[in-house]
Amino acid sequence: MGKAKEYSGALLPPLRALYFLAALLLLVVLWEAAASLYQRPYLPHVWEIGERLWRELSAGELVGDLQLSLRRIALSLLISSLTGITFGLLAARSSYGSRLLRPIILATYPMPHITLIPILLWLLGVEGSKIAVISLITFYPIALSTMEWALRTPREYEQLIETMGGNAWHKTVYVVIPSILPGVLTGLRLAVSTAFAVVFVAESFVLTGGVGAFIEESWQRFDYAGVYAGMIALSAAGMISYAAIWLLEKRYREKIGY
């Protein structure tokens, strides 16, 4: 490869961790200012939310719900990754795939998939519908990113494998998969954030545990500190997952300069 471009990530470089903490602190201060100023039940004080979060996490109820939500997200992401990578690759690299799959993926991408929950519930049952809707929504960022990157794979790398006597399998293993990996990781990173947002909707539709159900039940009891405790637990887990994938992606891209 010629002169490699430096990949500059958009979020969380180590030196900016301090700014990140400062931003969080600012958010807390603003929240507390609003809570003190307006004195509304739906705007509890920061320490009330903190105390509630601590109690829920140590008592174990929220921990169990968080584990359940994480299991659902992990399973859904596994399904969306496998299908997203496969469909993205087929849409980019097979002539029938590009003619048939690409328009289907692009046409169904902006659809409000969340509205399919009642149908999925009927088709796949309670648990199945939750997994299906998260998988369906997170499928798109992975499939589209895989497709974009697979279309960009330099032809010269594949020609190199051809001149070494390699076949389609060798090209897939030694060129296509390593070349789309940064794109797959970008798609997965976006999918993870989406999954954490969607899991609430999926879990609050029929309440069978999970942080989404925890939040919904708290809403129904007008337990606002509980609502925010659940939201914080979910978003913290989402942020950690996002950062972990981002780091992996950054490392790989820095290593290969691609």
Binding site: Y157, T163, G165, Y174, P178, G257
Partner: peptide, 18 residues
């Protein structure tokens, strides 16, 4: 035959991920 000829392009002569 395949593999009897080795070709080095001007750029991209090595796979960057290996």
């Amino acid at each position: 035959a395949r593999g009897e000829i080795s070709y080095l392009p001007q750029d991209n002569e090595l796979l960057p991920w290996f």
